[in-house]
Design a protein around this nucleic acid. Sequence first.
DNA 1: TCAGTAGTTCGACAAATATCGAACAGTTGC
DNA 2: GCAACTGTTCGATATTTGTCGAACTACTGA
Lengths: 100, 100
Amino acid sequence: MPKVKSPKKLAVLSEVLAALADPLRLKIVRMLDAEGEKSCGSFEIEIPKSSLSHHFKVLRDSGIVLTHREGKNQINALNRGALKKQYPGLLESVLRAKSD
Amino acid sequence: MPKVKSPKKLAVLSEVLAALADPLRLKIVRMLDAEGEKSCGSFEIEIPKSSLSHHFKVLRDSGIVLTHREGKNQINALNRGALKKQYPGLLESVLRAKSD
DNA sequence: TCAGTAGTTCGACAAATATCGAACAGTTGC
DNA sequence: GCAACTGTTCGATATTTGTCGAACTACTGA
């Protein structure tokens, strides 16, 4: 049995790409990359919380983002390990592009 | 004026990702990568031609695929130059993943 | 226990995408 | 010209996705 490195497996490529194929979700991913773990509310994005929650759900369902609770907050982080293992280079290329 | 390398500019990242976020279009991109230039009809994909044409349009509109006519055929090719320049590593990582 | 904070879920509606037949358009060869 | 071939466009319908208020759940601190 291989050693466990990443807590969650990613979805198939097309689903991961679909999750990334939205300017707002791309922004969230960039902020998680630049600022590390963040609670949902700490993203300064002007959008109703139900909409924001929806986008986090898409990111989680695809496996791109991992979430755990800390007190009242849900802490979100990039699933770097699984991304690197399953789709090497993908996150890097997406982050490197400065386009929406 | 910089020297012209790629015939067409790509769409913004989210649009390029959306174009790639479909198993069928991903398959087309893989076949174009593996087999080089191909006419629309030479893809052995069981789908009505209007549907196939739609998917080619999405790929063209995003700038991923370039098309030119040769006789009766439309010849499609990956826009490798523009992809490499605008989103370095993206095509490679997508092609490398063997997932849908 | 109760108020406040953080976030999810539900349900209705809107908007974007996909599917596919039919009609149309460009090219070739007779 | 016209028939055959390749592919696009149109229009109708179906499916998916996004938006957002309201209700709900989980946790904290007084």
